[in-house]
């Protein structure tokens, strides 16, 4: 089960991971974007971190929605509305629960993915965060259906995310600022796909 305390430590771990990887994400974004992804994600989760105490009394849905609103109002760029929508849809799906079954965890990730696709209109293969979130959600759904434990399912999903990130390297970007590079976007790892992987890894870390 994913308990409320796991969700809280996941959110906190997101901040740590994005602080550790701030320069790395920005460096990836310098190659094919506008060199701000690490800074923007860090600014957003730092704001979440500062408001962390206010999340303690909330249920899982309310925690995730609150994170969403903070990201929407502090990240900016394209990542703000996209990650904001991701957490908002997750929170809406989670509702007022205090713990989630593995199946419900897969369901909230599915809801988050669909929200991102609705807001950004990206499909798999466009070299975006959807290229990580799609295999992650499919992997989670497959494993919980097969009756694997939450930790096993998320371990598998982290592997799927890693592969998803690597698979963005040869792709030509079709959405966002990298799309202006056309062929020149080949050979570069997508920063948004990378931050999506980091957020999943943070969830894995919160379960150990």
């Amino acid at each position: 089960m994913l308990k409320k305390d796991h969700v809280l430590s996941w959110i906190n771990r997101c901040y740590e991971v994005l602080e550790e990887n701030r320069q790395y994400l920005t460096k990836l974004d310098t190659a094919i974007g506008d060199a701000d992804h690490g800074n923007n994600m860090h600014r957003g989760f730092k704001k979440v971190h500062i408001q962390f105490e206010t999340l303690q009394d909330k249920d899982i849905g309310a925690i995730l929605k609150s994170v969403a609103m903070t990201l929407i109002s502090s990240v900016g760029g394209a990542s703000g509305p996209l990650y904001g929508t991701f957490f908002l849809q997750m929170g809406t799906k989670a509702g007022s629960k205090e713990e989630l079954s593995p199946k419900e965890v897969a369901q909230i990730w599915r809801a988050g993915l669909e929200g991102v696709k609705m807001r950004g209109k990206a499909e798999p293969g466009d070299k975006t965060m959807v290229d990580v979130l799609t295999p992650v959600v499919e992997s989670l759904e497959r494993d919980v259906e097969a009756g694997k434990s939450l930790v096993e399912a998320i371990d598998q999903a982290v592997e799927a995310a890693e592969k998803g990130v690597q698979d963005t390297i040869p792709l030509i970007a079709r959405k966002g600022r990298a799309s202006y590079l056309g062929e020149r976007s080949k050979g570069h790892q997508d920063p948004g796909a990378t931050s999506s992987k980091l957020i999943l890894q943070a969830l894995r870390d919160s379960l150990s």
């Binding site: 506008d34 060199a35 701000d36 800074n39 923007n40 600014r43 929407i72 109002s73 502090s74 990240v75 900016g76 760029g77 394209a78 703000g80 509305p81």
Partner: peptide
Amino acid sequence: PGEVFTSPTPDQ
């Protein structure tokens, strides 16, 4: 106004 080269946010 957003951050440098970054879109402002919906609340603004």
